[in-house]
Design a protein around this nucleic acid. Sequence first.
RNA 1: GCUCGAGUGGCGGAAUUGGUAGACGCGCUGGAUUCAAAAUCCAGUUCUUUCGGGAGUGUGGGUUCGAUUCCCACCUCGAGUACCA
Length: 1164
Amino acid sequence: MQYNHIEIEKKWQDFWNKNQTFKASNESEKPKYYVLDMFPYPSGAGLHVGHPLGYIASDIYARYKRHKGFNVLHPQGYDSFGLPAEQYAIQTGQHPAKTTEENIKTYRRQLDRIGFSFDWSREVRTSNPEYYKWTQWIFIQLFNSWYNKDSDKAEDIATLIKIFKKDGNATVNAVCDENIKSFTAEEWKAFTKAEQEQILLQYRLTFLSDTEVNWCPALGTVLANDEIVNGVSERGGHPVVRKKMTQWSMRISAYAQRLLDGLSTIDWPQPLKDSQTNWIGKSVGAMVSFEVLSPALSEGKGEKSDSKKTLGYMTGGNNSYLLLEKAKEMRANPTPAEAILWKHLKGKKLKSKFRQQHLINDFIVDFVCLSKKLIIEVDGKIHDYQLEKDEARTLELEQKSGFKVIRFKNEEVIGDIDAVLSKIDSELSNQAFLLSKLEEKKGDNNHKQANVTVSLSSGKGLRDRISVFTTRPDTIFGVSFMTLAPEHELVAKITTDAQKAAVEAYVQATAKRSERDRMADVKTISGVFTGAYAIHPFTGKQIPIWIGDYVLANYGTGAVMAVPCGDQRDYDFAKHFDIEIPNIFENVDISEAAHTDKEGTVIANSDFLSGLSYKKALKLAIFELEKMGAGYGKINYRLRDAVFSRQRYWGEPFPVYYKDGMPQMIDAKHLPIVLPEVEKYLPTEDGKPPLGNATEWAWDTRANKVVSNDKLKNKTVYPLELNTMPGWAGSSWYFNRYMDSNNEGEFASKEALDYWKDVDLYIGGSEHATGHLLYARFWQKFLFDRGIVPVDEFAKKLINQGMILGTSAFVYRVHKIRCFNGDKYIGSTKRLSYDIKKEIFVSKDFDNQELFKKKLLENAPNTSNQKIIDLYKEVTENIDDFKIEFLYSKLHVKVQYVNSSDELNIEELKKDKEFGKDYIDAEFILEDGVYKVGREVEKMSKSKLNVLNPDEVCKEYGADSLRLFEMFLGPLEQAKPWKTSGISGVSSFLKKLWKLYFNGEIFEVSDAAPTKDELKTLHKTIKKVEEDIENFSFNTSVSTFMIAVNELTALKCNKRAILEPLAILVSPYAPHIAEELWSLLGHTKSIATTDFPVFEEKHLVESSKTYPVSFNGKMRFTMDLSLDLSKDEIEKAVMAHEKTIAQLAGREPKKVIIVPGKIINIVG
RNA sequence: GCUCGAGUGGCGGAAUUGGUAGACGCGCUGGAUUCAAAAUCCAGUUCUUUCGGGAGUGUGGGUUCGAUUCCCACCUCGAGUACCA
């Protein structure tokens, strides 16, 4: 009987389906085993042969575990919400539910055809209301929870309210929004309901907030960081911009540390763990706070008191460096008149503080009262370099900077100091009045006025502070400047007048640059000095504050303390702008680059830190900072809270309505809130998400149901949330649902959750490393905290299957033929593809000059291409020795039309529905009678025409062949190219296997006792296959089967005692043929749960060994020796061997190494 | 740049704690069968060779009786990630 894969596979697929062979029970005596695949998004294109790779591996494992006596849960379903269906809906108007349904049908048909042992009775679809009901329910749980850092877990929000009522929020140690105002219990009780809600929202694990989001205008939605690749959307490649929107967010940052810690408890691939670790981005260091010297715009205006010594007196402009030196010099050498006036001004006799020889923008003024904006100039001494500018400078100072300038002559000061002082006094009070007027005006937000006074406002009690996060507080004495992100809120506040223009220009230029530009351009160093200075907390030194786009606004505090000697970016920046680079490392050369090593580095020039190692200095620096209140130790995470709103239609609706602008959860018992029908799937005209198109989308709090928007005027009807949930919502918990997927009353029953607990083996692609797999871990930990699930990691072991690559095929279209006479170019056809109707394709290796010519000569007379005919005439008639060069372009061609020898089936290609017409008139220049295509390994994709449908493979070779071949290609985790030609190997293996059980056309197995050799082959195979499956080394066990079948064929073995266990061994890999043989062997039940054959060592025991005999480690020959021999006996036998004597050629061996049962090595 | 992974015939790949490098399969070559083809079966297939042998797992060193395997340095390719302070 012939092996007929089509009949057999259909038969057994129907059998499994009818008998529910793989239905898992939630109650069993057997130990449980849960094997899961990352569920697919059902795309319209269906499966290609690359997709089932992981499914085949997990299916083999699941089937193996059933043979090994486990109760196996192996479910499958669909992640059926998603963008493609919605995009399709936008284009065609078809409801996404409809296209999704159709796509799922295709997927199911394709999956069934490969013979997977899925328990389809547990299928889930994230877009089913019965499923997303529970996604909504989890959202409510998150909303009703806060993260208590003291217990280090999520707790019910009620426990927080209890604390608020008792103690206010002072004692609460929670993960929450920044800048929360503190309140007492009394204050809490006095708050309105809305105020309380507002506060609670700052603590909830899912919360509304105005977030800077990645807005993709082309898709009309917000994207998560992991949905953006190189600054454009992952799907479609559309540009993405930053935008502020009110969004639901998930406080995943609360779990940063636990997500990190959990990684060490799970058996996941190291690269995947690494990328999660990287994504969470933990860094240990310190927050350091620097005082800013420049006065602040927003505070202290109009204050009378300027007595504090903490005045912002740094009012210099661009040339401050130069002028400051000059000013110092002039202060030290006053004219007599200046000296007299200073004596009267400095003691605050006029109740206002004056400064002498002070820098205002780019001018040095003699005396100034900053608080009253009064400048006093004493003429007479010639400021040679600025004399001619006096008029201009008065104008500048008065009009631009808002100062009043009064001048006295030397004689006035010396002659009548009292009159001078009285004049100054009256001007001071005038100024005070004017300034207070100005202050009132500024209430109208007059920006221009604000600018005028920006750097010149009076002092105030509190200075601005810049907080920075650093991982290297040990290098604090190496700080020589600070850099703020251009978007930093203090930038506008501290920038001096003179620097205003430059800073603003820079900030604007940065804002205009897209994220993409900024990322692509890492090398350009840019920045601007703000004119402001900060004070070093330890040395008190003034540190210039710069802005630069190498500092990111949304990381840390958006500011850095720059330590150029210890950080390469700071170093580059300092070099570029010629900023000081103090060296604070012992015996380290920093003339070429920063010294970034930590280990083994000793700190120097750093006061109390000098001489300490990195580790000690780090601790001491933090200790000292904490002592003086200038900083504290801190752990920072890169992980941001996850934005959870999408402006899309095809996703889970939120169970949320808005009452007085505050979000309200709908009671769980009214779930699911079903996605409403809309006419259009696009955003509304006023920019609301697609759900804004729904006419029935309001919540009636009395009837507890969704009602028409018309009823919104009713007091008890409120608008529903218009956003939907992101793609990862449904996939973050589906593995739990499979445990009890038909439960209508619960997320999953406690019994089911306690029985199945977690996924034992999870297989899927590595592209989910920082998306699905991080969010799912987050939700699992949350559900664990709230006592809903019994374990806090959902998957014990995870394997990333590698991609199957396609082997693209190319044809070479000639677009030009160039002719040479010797080396001399004599002409070419011009752009053939435009000139002629007939395209010309040359075979891949058709580069033989003689053949070229011959072909040209043969073909030219027949071609309709006039250019070729002309050229042909020219060269054949006039030139004896001509050379030809073909210029061609490479075109993808469907791999279906290429056979295993890379030969193109031109006839079939011409009949192709899609592309046939492009080739119908084409002329193919063959080599040796065939057209050979070029081949290249590329990612399997529709556009590269290298996609193979598993249906076609199943039809031609069978599902069992497909399964074996996918495994045989190479290690599961590795990327490997698909070459259909290779499948004949596994296909003929199956035929050989089949033949073992047959004598010609008749099924015939013998009950005779097996021979020693037969048993040896069987048990060798059992051992190897078992080891391989346990190690997920599926490719090698396919080889093992082949070896076994080859050996048994050679032994002409047809013994039941061998062939029965062999069928079981093969069954996880090739289940259809195994079932068929099993039933032919007389069994009436499925092979699926038959016990796996037991390996017996005794069948492998040998009496002799073929020893490899090596000389200096190189194997030269082998010899058979009994395993009973002692070392000495072996040595004697080896030394007596004629080849040994020949090898040694008379030399005496220095040493003979003998490892009994292994090797013999002769050294000498 | 950083992190991780990988380099073995014409190709996919195999090789246990360091112990016969190239299993198994594809492809190729020759042969058998056939009117012929497909299918099937048999033999060969790392390179080199004076047919004794010699060389050989990205390169160069090292450890060892013995290295594809362990260590060091470098080169190449792939994946992820990126001004992360």
